[in-house]
């Protein structure tokens, strides 16, 4: 059922966009503009992705990732989390592009449809770079103490991590929590 909904979402979105473009020509121009922006945005990713993926390859091939995973396996197992997600869980709140690169290398190491990768995908999609967001949001205000915001946001991203693994198990492994 969920699989069916998921696979219908995209055609429905495309169809409604197509309908808009069919009705008025200017919407196609909008498409071209947006697509160009998307392309530029992706091109700007290249330098950061290159440097971070290189570093992460060193991290994986040099054995650091394995050590880290082994270190966290007992803790993660007792929480029923995949240990492979630890590097991503650390980078996600701190830096958006570092998280993107970590996510990409996780997908490669574990396989795009593996349990750790699905957990990571759900987490990536439903949380944000909280350190950056909070820093930017409060940058122009007189507020000095953001402890309460950080605390709530941190609890939120921990919850997101657990929930991601639960949802990954429920939807993709057919496990009943």
């Amino acid at each position: 059922m969920i699989g069916l909904i998921s696979s219908l979402v995209i055609p429905a979105v495309l169809l409604s966009a197509g309908m808009l473009m069919f009705r008025r020509g200017e919407y196609f121009n909008a498409f071209v503009k947006g697509a160009m922006d998307g392309l530029k945005c992706t091109a700007e990713l290249v330098p950061t992705m290159v440097i971070l993926i290189s570093a992460l390859y060193m991290f994986t091939k040099g054995g650091a990732a394995e050590l880290l995973t082994r270190l966290f396996t007992p803790l993660c197992e007792s929480l029923r989390l995949p240990a492979e997600i630890v590097p991503l869980a650390v980078t996600r709140p701190v830096s958006g592009s570092a998280a993107t690169a970590t996510f990409a290398s996780l997908l490669e190491v574990c396989g795009a449809d593996s349990y750790p990768a699905i957990t990571a995908a759900i987490m990536m999609g439903s949380s944000d770079t909280l350190v950056y967001v909070i820093a930017v949001y409060f940058s122009k205000t007189r507020v000095k103490s953001t402890v309460r915001v950080f605390a709530i946001a941190a609890i939120g991203s921990l919850l997101c991590l657990f929930l991601s693994s639960v949802l990954a198990r429920v939807f993709f492994l057919g496990d009943c929590i």
Binding site: I2, S7, V9, A104, G111, A112, D113, A121, G125, F172
Partner: peptide, 16 residues
Amino acid sequence: AGSAAPYSVVVPIWIC
């Protein structure tokens, strides 16, 4: 990364 169904995570992401 070669996922068989790249979009399949959309609904879980919404729920999460």
